[in-house]
Design a protein around this nucleic acid. Structure first.
Lengths: 215, 215
DNA sequence: GTCTATAAAAGGATAGAC
DNA sequence: GTCTATCCTTTTATAGAC
């Protein structure tokens, strides 16, 4: 409750609306509320309270509830694919490279915040089609494109036999999602343990390599 | 608007609340509204209007909104796994048997009504955990159990090398869901064409057989 | 820019007549 | 059992003072 009288330190920075620090607080609070409660049940009052500001301040910054929601989701979509990207140079053992990628994929994707984001985007896909599109492009599609490039390379080298690189990449990630992805979506299971993740990775990589063995 | 004066024909049938025909109308209307709009936005007024009855009649039959929702979802969960079940005798070619199962799976699961059901169950998994559990058991889990039995049989006969039957069955269905399942969840794609389904089936069955080839 | 009220509407649930 | 009319809470959004 104790409030500093003059906390206006860094406000002449950005171009448009100055990030007074309150704007940041609103964004973080809105993310928490939207991702735990969902779009409908998340009230602007709850968001304002969580951010420690008045409701009018929220409206001053974002105008309306749907605009705030869009801002939050688009923001979260930014760092979806960060961890799930192959390194620039991939000259090692394909099994190891794919295993590393798979490990990063399950570690990032099955995370609770990530599942919460996906859940709310799915739930609101009818009302916010652009967000569904943005999520898919920033997440699954980006991952597929990234891997497909590597698979073409492996095919060229003769390490694997890949007919349709994108189809193969999709299959790879589908195997990695596995059944756990469904259970995570339905909130039936907590984040998998390290052992479970490793089992998932091992099964998927082995199956993928067997399915695309050369000759 | 024209209403028959005496439409009470079959009401002394069931045990508890008599299915006057209006109850059935309410169930069908509620299913439509809940599955298209989602739980929150689906208003009891809209359901009553869609069913052509008064709101009080809806409350007389189901008591509250959440009870109605549970009744609808549990009802829809009944016929989830109907098509996706192996026949009693499975003595043919494993590739063909698996292909048939896969075809029925994608035909049933990727259906719009089915996706709508899954979407709403996912969205409300926090508020209705029992429904999420019921859905998983009636759908994915039942499919896995059913297939796992057949896979054990194939392993015994030496047709395939299956270490963990349930894990293998989960992998099979995960491959079948593929990337399209995500796009369908996000409402980015309509129901896949026959050719797309066949491609999905072919890819999954081939990969599965390769991954579990004996020797 | 930020706050404290307040307006205006929607929706879940109930009362009481028939 | 069914309907019409109503209550009451919640929630989005705005008005006006500082």
């Amino acid at each position: 409750m104790a409030k500093a009288t003059t906390a206006k330190i860094s406000e002449t920075a950005a171009t448009g609306t100055a990030p007074t620090g309150k704007r940041h607080a609103i964004v973080e609070a809105a993310a928490r509320v939207f991702l735990t409660a969902g779009y409908g049940p998340a009230s602007m009052d709850a968001i304002a309270a969580e951010a420690g500001v008045s409701k009018q301040t929220v409206y001053s910054h974002f105008g309306a509830k749907d605009a705030l929601f869009e801002a939050i989701v688009e923001d979260k979509c930014q760092d979806l694919m960060g961890p799930v990207r192959l390194p620039a140079v991939t000259d090692g053992d394909p099994a190891k490279t794919l295993g590393d990628l798979a490990r990063r994929f399950v570690a990032a994707v099955l995370t609770s915040p990530n599942m919460a984001l996906f859940r709310v985007v799915v739930a609101e896909s009818a009302r916010f089609p652009e967000l569904a599109e943005a999520f898919y492009r920033a997440g699954p599609a980006a991952a597929v494109d990234n891997l497909a490039g590597y698979l073409i390379e492996l095919d060229r080298k003769g390490n694997l036999a890949i007919r349709d690189a994108k189809a193969a990449a999709r299959l790879f990630f589908a195997m990695l999602r596995g059944d756990i992805y469904i259970r995570r979506l339905l909130d039936l299971k907590p984040e998998p343990s390290a052992a479970e993740k490793e089992a998932l990775v091992g099964q998927a990589v082995a199956a993928f390599l067997a399915a695309h063995a050369p000759d």
